[in-house]
Nucleic acid binder design. Structure first.
Lengths: 217, 217
DNA sequence: CTTGAATATTAGGTTTTCCTAATCATCGCA
DNA sequence: TGCGATGATTAGGAAAACCTAATATTCAAG
């Protein structure tokens, strides 16, 4: 019996930990739209239940059990997203929102059936790997778009998920998994990249570019 | 912002009221697996919020607003059930369970897309009408199986939903919407009906038979 | 018209998840 | 090394849904 709140915390902790360091409480609170006090409280509860390890001023880390749960949630989320986008033709950011609800009320049997119906997709619409029913997750190969040199051509394999605004923006630019991009120019001093995407030429901030994964063509 | 609990109450009140009289609190509590005190408390809250009218010892009735909400929930429930059974090939009673969760986390946009994908089905897998997005619900024509006479032949148009055990039982007997039945015999003193369903002959209690709707062939 | 059963309500609690305000601890930088 | 910003925790609450136990009402049937 894992409550919806608990699941959301586990998911958020997992996502935050993806950027290297353990999740900090204020960052966690921020992401969940909750006060630091509440996040602290909940983290204590998760610790008591053996789902995370918490060291004040250091951060929160998932235990093996906690990570298994988190991967399972991610599995549900990404399969639903795939369904919503591919089958129901829902726009990206709306699909993310909707999947956030559905993921907490989906039995293993339902999810397995959904996976079979979808033909066992490897990734969600943003290119993130779908964990298996047994909790394995494939690691994406590809490197940040910001690592390319001028003149390089590459194909997008992954864009960040979560932030609704970012999703709409990228979607509007046509930057989605499978898109071919050519680096036209790279501005100095951590400046933006100029890209050619199909016919269009556009500028993309370095920060966002570093969160988009590409593969050499 | 209607909470999941509130939605479940509205749904239960609607279903109970279908059998004629306003929903009694103990019946409501029973159906929701909750104490009478809790049900009473919640009904008071619903009344405060203008969703029901409550007269002690008389029962609970939905207001126009409450009924609109209930129909919307039923719409979501039945469309999801259709999806789970038709598309994911989920067995009946598992689908009912699963739909109970999904119905509370589905935005109007999601439900409209789902409906379009399913081709705008008129009924759920048990033959209950799907309310429209604007809150209309078609009334089923058909009469109780228990009203037939010996020798009558008819086609099932609706079976009771909700109780998991009943669903499995009926499903096992092959009694589902579309099934053709012939009344072989009717036992006196409110006794069981003997039916022929395809090749099989089976006995069905009068009570259950009265909750199955059929149409003359 | 009384009385027993069914129904309703009150009183007092619990758990979960959130909050604000205030205090305490720590880290990193000057 | 000392201090200010950031992070952590405590104290005290709130709202939603539940619960049990006890009491009060009302219904219906004899």
């Amino acid at each position: 019996m894992t409550s919806q709140s608990v699941e959301e915390y586990l998911e958020a902790i997992y996502k935050l930990a993806e950027d290297g360091a353990p999740a900090a409480i204020p960052a966690l609170a921020e992401r969940l739209g909750v006060s630091s006090v509440s996040a602290n409280e909940m983290v204590r509860r998760l610790e008591r239940d053996g789902l995370v390890a918490y060291a004040p001023y250091k951060g929160v880390t998932l235990t093996a059990e906690g990570e298994a749960r988190a991967l399972n949630i991610l599995r549900r989320h990404r399969l639903w997203e795939r369904f919503l986008v591919d089958v129901l033709a829902m726009p990206w950011e709306e699909a993310h929102e909707a999947a956030c609800g559905l993921e907490h009320v989906s039995s293993p049997s339902l999810i397995d059936r959904l996976e079979r119906f979808l033909g066992g997709p490897d990734t969600c619409p943003h290119g993130h790997a779908v964990p298996t029913a047994t909790g394995q997750i494939a690691l994406r190969n590809g490197r940040p778009l910001s690592d390319l040199a001028e003149g390089d051509e590459a194909v997008v394999v992954q864009v960040p998920e979560e932030e609704p605004g970012v999703l709409t923006y990228l979607s509007g630019l046509g930057l989605r998994p499978g898109t071919v991009v050519v680096v036209v120019a790279i501005a100095p001093f951590e400046g933006p990249l100029t890209l050619r995407v199909g016919e269009a030429v556009l500028a993309l901030g370095r920060n966002l570019a570093s969160r988009i994964l590409v593969e050499r063509k």
